[in-house]
């Protein structure tokens, strides 16, 4: 089943000449990706995911009123110019579809293909339910010990 999803990603990426294409859940965890992963992709994705997918959608709506005119609610596309290419994000709950383009002339095509991709497969099958639990840190340990442990090796020398 996952093989079929992977093939779809591969086809779309090749059609676009994109360097990477991926699908993440709303927490920003990549569920499936295809292509070469530029170093900042996962960080960007995780950061966007941490903002929350619905927040991301709202930001897109608030910042790109003209853009979203023809898009359906929950089907907004965001473009970011980040080295080494252009990142195109389709925010459609509960997923984030992301593609990195190196060829700017394919932006229009990329928007179309991302939407097609989102409709082409029951992506929900990739999703595992995120669990919420109580934080296990608020007990026992002394403050200084926690602090020492937490920030160990964090700072550049």
């Amino acid at each position: 089943m996952k093989g079929e999803a992977y093939t779809l990603l591969q086809e779309t990426r090749q059609e676009l000449g994109a360097s990477v294409i991926l699908i993440a859940n709303e927490a920003g965890q990549a569920l499936l990706y295809e292509g070469i992963e530029p170093p900042q992709t996962m960080d960007l994705l995780a950061a966007l995911g941490a903002a929350g997918l619905s927040a991301l959608q709202e930001i897109i709506t608030a910042s790109f009123k003209g853009w979203g005119r023809n898009a359906h609610q929950g089907d907004q596309i965001l473009m970011l110019e980040v080295d080494p290419g252009i990142i195109l994000i389709l925010a459609r709950a509960p997923f984030i579809f992301l593609v990195i383009l190196t060829d700017k002339t394919r932006l229009g095509l990329a928007r179309l293909l991302l939407r097609r991709l989102a409709n082409q497969y029951p992506w929900e099958r990739l999703l595992t339910t995120a669990q919420r639990h109580e934080l296990p840190l608020r007990k026992d340990k002394s403050m200084s010990e926690t602090r020492k442990q937490l920030f160990r090796d964090l700072w550049a020398r």
Binding site: D43, M79, L80, V82, L107, F151, L154
Partner: peptide
Amino acid sequence: ISLNTYGDRTLFFDLLQVSLSQV
């Protein structure tokens, strides 16, 4: 990462991801 969009529009926030040591 400063979220500058293609063209002259900006998404208007900066972000940095930091990993701490396991606790």
